[in-house]
Each structure stands twice: as C-alpha cells, then as structure tokens.
Design a protein around this nucleic acid. Structure first.
Length: 366
DNA sequence: GTATGCTTTCGGC
DNA sequence: TTACGGCCGAAAGCATAC
C-alpha cells in the first residue's frame, strides 16, 4: 500500500516531576525532585526523576536524595515522594488519547509508547510531522503534559530520533536520511549492544554505527552467530521490521523492600520476604498466572546487589511454593555471603496463563 | 553448530 | 565518617537441546 511505514515514539518529558508540576503549577519555575523514600532515615532514598531546572544542579535519576538536597541547598527546590497512582492515572489518560491517533499502538512503559501512523499519514513524512505537532498540542491542551516525539521509518530509528532532542522535542528522520542519521552514533546505542559486545566490536575496529554498517556481514555472523550477526548488520543499516504491537503483560512480578536495619539473620529476612511474597502472590493470582521461576534479590550493606533463582519442572500457582523456595534461596545465599543485607526482594517469572479448558488441543490433533 | 533455556548481573527510568 | 529505590527487560555467560 505505502512504500514505507511511519513510526513514532512518544516519550513524556521528565514524567513524574512534570505530573507534580501539573498538580501544583506554582512550582513550575523551581527545581522539582521526585524520589523514593525508603523510610530508614529522614532523607534515605533515591531520586526517581527531576525537572530540567533541578538537572542543572546535577540532580538526576538514581542519585541519593540527601545528595540532591545538598546540591540544591539555597534554592527553592521542592521534593516529593513518588505517587504512582496519580502518575498512572495521568499516563492512562495520555495513552488513551494517543491510541485514538493510530492503527497500531504499543505502550512500552508508564511514559513511552510507539505509534504506527502509516495509514493516517499515507506514508508521507511531511504529513507525519504536522500530525505529530497536532498530537503534542492535543495532549498539552487536554492533559497539560508536554512530550517528545521521534518519527522514523521503524521503531529503531524513531527511538533514537526521540532521544536526540528533548524536552518538548519533535525530530523527524526520513527513510532516506535514516542511515546517515545513525552513522555517527556509537554502536552501543543499538539495542543488543551492551558493554561486553561493544568492547568486542571495538577490538574489531567498530566504534560507530557506520563502522558496523560497513563491516562484512559474513564476519559478523562468524563472530556473533547467525541471529545476532544479521541483526547487527540490519540495525546498523537502519533496517528494522519489528511491528508495533500491543504489549502483553510483564514477564515477571517482583517486590523489593528496604529493611529497618541491616541483618543476615534468616528469620528476620524471612519476616520481610513473607510480606513481599503476600503482595507478589496476590498480583499473580489476580492475573490468573502459574509461574515456573522463583528468585530472591539481596542488596548488601556495600550496596552491591545479588540474586539467586530456581526454576521448577512445571508451572505452579501455590503461595507455599514461593515461600518454600524463597527460604531455600535465602539459606543458599547466606551460606555464600558474609555481609549484612540492606534490602531484599522476591521475584516470580516464567508465567503461563491458566488454561481453563483444553479446547485448543483438539485443533492441534484435529 | 545453532537455538533455546537457565542463572545472574546490568542498566534505564 | 558516611551517604542510596523499586521495578522491569536486556545482556552475558553457560549448559543443554535440537
């Protein structure tokens, strides 16, 4: 029908902090910091998001809250604890509006979504640019939130286009421009290229996406295997056929909590994990899942995190199975470590949806 | 030999 | 003399299956 797809990535700007600005517009010209408070001491916790004014003071996602306070001393900065329910409501509202603009929609997180607007724009990138302006304006008027949109011929290019200019950005990369747009960027900007892979690539003389695009495919396949080698070659040449599709449910459910005080006492740890198991189990049950893998997670006093997991032969759905395995995994972990634990977590994954009946099987045999 | 699955760690938000 | 969340999927490195 059309020569190319038109894909957008919409990313809500500094989302949690912008939600707080929306709730209380008087703070818009102040540094705004949203953090997760662990409850241990007054300022124990970490920054989740901050607005761009706070970022000028080096206050960004992940740093300790007390450090953020220190950096912002003498300013009229305001701090908030995360209010996930409120941000979720605003996110749902925006997502609902966005989804009316597209033929395919894929929410990737609370503040990001891919839009396939090929039909709506008739495959025309000039129309797409105007269309994106309209979408941004509509969200601004209806919800009061600004967002950044990247437009490209596929998800890969749309994502990198989006990253290139924010907040309140709109970046268009036409099909003809895509290869040149990616060319100067470091190869690790591609999904699938982590630290180790990037080092291996550098050793092969590959630093930029352009280097990767020009590299002999056969040799890429020899080094990284057929699947990855071909994927790298295509991605570097701005070829990506991943469709925009509604995401299924998450692949894992986990709960993590910070202990009142550090300990390596099994029973004290179990007190905390039992609480976490209750919440995890409730969610798993609501979704009607069976699960195959149980994991524990521990952050030691040195802030290094460790995990242990166990996969069952068959999917099961009993709370007792989680509890039993959490105990075994904690025992195993404590035997291997000598440090006190600061935070613990429980994770279950490997979900199967409960099959209420076996109708599907008949077609398989029929 | 390549694909898939499992475990642990990493990193983005 | 420090200091620091909670989640998720991706990445990495093996082991085993096909």
């Amino acid at each position: 029908m059309f020569q190319n797809r038109v894909i957008m990535l919409a990313d809500f700007d500094y989302f949690f902090a912008q939600c707080e600005e929306l709730r209380n517009p008087a703070i818009r010209d102040k540094p705004v910091v949203v953090g997760v408070y662990s409850g241990r001491t007054e300022d124990s916790g970490a920054v989740s998001t901050s607005n761009y004014i706070a970022r000028r003071y080096g206050v960004k996602s992940g740093i300790p809250i007390f450090l953020a306070k220190r950096n912002l001393e003498g300013t009229d900065a305001v701090f908030f604890p995360v209010d996930h329910d409120y941000y979720g409501q605003i996110s749902d509202h925006i997502m609902q509006i966005l989804s009316t603009y597209v033929s395919s929609f894929e929410q990737v997180s609370i503040d990001e979504a891919y839009l396939d607007v090929t039909l709506q724009t008739e495959g025309n990138f000039e129309k797409a640019y105007l269309y994106a302006q309209r979408i941004k304006q509509d969200i601004k008027v209806q919800v009061g939130i600004s967002l950044t949109i990247g437009i490209g011929p596929n998800k890969l290019v749309a994502k990198i286009a989006c990253d290139s200019q924010k907040p309140d950005g709109l970046t268009l990369v036409r099909p003809k421009e895509a290869v040149g747009f990616l060319a100067p960027l470091p190869a690790d900007r591609l999904l699938g290229v982590g630290k180790k892979t990037f080092v291996r690539m550098e050793q092969m003389g590959i630093k930029t996406i352009e280097d990767l695009a020009k590299f002999d495919v056969q040799r890429l396949i020899e080094v990284f295997g057929k699947t990855l080698g071909l994927y790298f070659h295509n991605a570097a040449n701005a070829i990506d056929n991943e469709p925009v599709v509604e995401q299924g449910d998450a692949g894992s459910i986990s709960k993590i909590g910070t202990l009142k005080q550090d300990t390596r006492d099994l029973e004290l740890l179990l007190q905390k994990t039992d609480e976490l198991v209750e919440t995890v189990y409730q969610e798993v049950t609501e979704k009607g899942y069976s699960f195959k893998t149980v994991s524990i997670y521990a952050v030691n006093v040195d802030l290094v995190s460790k995990s242990r997991s166990f996969t069952l032969e068959q999917p099961v759905k009993e709370k007792e199975v989680i509890k039993r395995n959490v105990r075994v995994l904690l025992e195993k972990y404590l035997a291997e470590s000598s440090l006190d634990v600061r935070r613990v977590g429980v994770r279950v994954s490997g979900f199967r949806k409960e099959q209420p009946q076996q109708k599907q099987l008949s077609s398989f045999f029929g």
